[in-house]
Amino acid sequence: MLADFRAWALDDLATSRRQAAWGRRYRIWLALKANPLAMIGMIIIGLCVILALLAPLLAPHDPAIQDLENRLARPTAEHLLGTDELGRDILSRLLYGGRITLGIVVAVVIMVAPVGLAVGTIAGYFGGWVDKTLMRITDVFLAFPRLILALAFVAALSPGVESAILAIALTAWPPYARIARAETLTVRNSEFIEAVAMTGASSWRIILRHVAPLCVPSLVVRVTLDMASIIITAASLGFLGMGAQPPSPEWGAMIATAKRFILDQWWVALSPCMAILLVSLAFNFLGDGLRDVLDPKQD
């Protein structure tokens, strides 16, 4: 079955649209598979997503149930990662927190990547005053430090996960627009785009169907490399009390509350720290691997 698919996808003499498309995808997968770091990153991310999704089944305790008798307990068989200042099970909170933190990341990416892609390709393709206007707006957003701008947004809205997502999204799109614009500039005067123009296709059709797909690979790479910093921004907002609000177990907020007793009960802060580190690192590995596979220019 798998061997059949393999032979079918790698056949140089594809006989249908579907076969040609799968052939391309399968070759990318093979190249990615040959990169051990990228595979490690992918497995870690996959595991984290599964753990977060299955949190209700896997968590040994309810993450909100307090047990004031048993506060700040060291790891035991009952509480594998110990308990926090209200006696809640840290492992359970970590699993549920993954849902929030990873949810923020996914939500931000879904909002940001298309916006950046649209702004960048439109600016790059049309040039002239369209380009100038869009890029100056981009520059304005780029000029502020990301965290401070996000903080200002959240403070203006109201602290919470939704505001954090919106704030991070508002500050995260400019680099994507810049990348998409740079990619667009390299292809917009190429003969194959002119050849499409000779079909009478509208500018919008050319951008959407011919230019944008060429920008996607470098954007995907940038997104995976950016995941880590989105997680950290989300955690920072949580840490500063501007992100997820108690008692929801967001990783950054967990570190924030644990900071008061970090010297005496270090294990409380350690677990969410390690979770953030691990996921960020995994996204970085995957991003590097994807860059090698999707963006061969960089060789």
């Binding site: 391309r24 190429s190 002119e194 009478g200």
Partner: peptide
């Protein structure tokens, strides 16, 4: 759009005039 039903062009570089990611 109708103009392009009447007039078409063939470009110089057969390596550059075909979209690299399209069949």
């Amino acid at each position: 759009r109708a103009f392009f039903r009447k007039v078409q062009m063939v470009f110089q570089d057969p390596f550059g005039s075909l979209h690299p990611r399209q069949t």
